[in-house]
Amino acid sequence: MSLVARHLEANGIATVVVGSARDIVEECGVPRFLFTDFPLGNPCGKPGDAEMQRQIAGMALDLLEAAALPRTSVQTPFIWSDDQSWRARYAQVEAGNAQQLQRLGEARRASQRRARLEDAG
């Protein structure tokens, strides 16, 4: 999506990326980025919280208006929960799931090989 932002912007359309994967967006480099420090999935605000969603959309518009330079990032003030454990749990690799992940990878590679064979056939 950051690549789309860059292309639109290079062709005169002002953009703002509204998202939660801060490192991915900032490593790519976009003109304007509104960051909400939430688990991936709800970049526009918590499900069911229309007021928060309104504020985030409003901040995205503010950023479109106010940014004077590329790579302008703004973080919204919202926190997901007092319980921060979601941060560690996402795509977690630990001793307990190492074998399961290895099997998952093998199964996916096998399914991709089958798909390639079917395509070729």
């Binding site: 999935g41 605000g45 969603q53 959309a57 995205a60 749990r89």
Partner: peptide
């Protein structure tokens, strides 16, 4: 993050 949230409210990802 399917463990932490859901996308049943479209307004949470499509404004």
């Amino acid at each position: 993050d399917k463990g932490a949230t859901h996308t049943e409210d479209i307004h949470s990802f499509l404004p």
